[in-house]
């Protein structure tokens, strides 16, 4: 299985992880520094993909590490440390999503950038691309981002964990506290939903999203 970037596991590294957990439980500052250095980027990436907001993702990451610090003493080692931290991240992001819906959905800031005004979240796909290909890539990204954002939370989470974080079905089942069969069926329904969203965007697309490509 492909490991997410920034998360390293030691080969045959059960003793290492156990000793690391013991150090964390003993309150070792070095152990926490190492944990923060190793997991901040992947946790931020996961939180950002679920929350789709940079500031919220940063807040969620801080909450996640605080929860890890507070609860590491109760960690029994039934799952891997990575799975445990990802589970905390998913739960924290879900709580933040719920809180956002209750409190902030109706608020609009006059200073907030409107969709399309700010492309700061776009990353150039390939610097060697010509302007047309670059524009096409951005529009594709925007369509996928829009489609993902419109999915229900549970579908988006399972898609993010499987397709973007490349976690195994077993790990997803542990993180989401659901059975393996449920992971598979939920993933299938999430793909179906994503497909429907993308198709509807493509059909209504030419005005907003020109999705033809030079190869066609």
């Amino acid at each position: 299985m492909e490991e997410p970037i920034g998360v390293e596991t030691t080969p045959g590294g059960e003793p290492d992880e156990k000793s690391r957990i013991r150090s964390l439980q003993a309150g070792s500052e070095e152990a926490f520094d190492s944990l923060i250095a190793e997991y901040t980027a992947p946790v931020f990436r996961l939180a950002y993909r679920i929350l789709n907001d940079r500031a919220d993702a940063a807040d969620a990451v801080q909450e996640v590490f605080l929860k890890v610090f507070r609860n590491i003493g109760e960690f029994q080692g039934d799952s891997s440390l990575k799975t445990w931290i990802y589970r905390i991240t998913v739960n924290t992001a879900a709580n933040q999503n719920r809180w956002w819906r209750r409190h902030k959905e109706q608020e609009y800031s006059l200073d907030a950038p409107q969709p399309g005004d700010n492309d700061s979240y776009f990353v150039p796909v390939d610097q060697a691309q010509n302007p047309f290909e670059s524009l096409l890539s951005r529009e594709t990204q925007e369509m996928v981002r829009t489609a993902m954002a419109s999915l229900p939370d549970c579908f988006r989470t399972v898609l993010v964990l499987r397709e973007m974080e490349s976690l195994s079905y077993e790990e997803i089942a542990e993180i989401l506290h659901i059975s393996l069969g449920t992971v598979k069926s939920r993933l299938a329904r999430a793909r179906q939903a994503l497909k429907s969203e993308l198709e509807s965007l493509i059909e209504s697309g030419p005005a907003r999203f020109p999705v033809w490509n030079p190869a066609e």
Partner: peptide, 20 residues
């Protein structure tokens, strides 16, 4: 996976260490 992820705030790690 190639969908862009916003850059992590530069001070995020420091903030986490500070809160801990």
């Amino acid at each position: 996976r190639q969908m862009p992820v916003s850059a992590m705030p530069a001070d995020l790690t420091a903030s986490i260490r500070c809160r801990i």
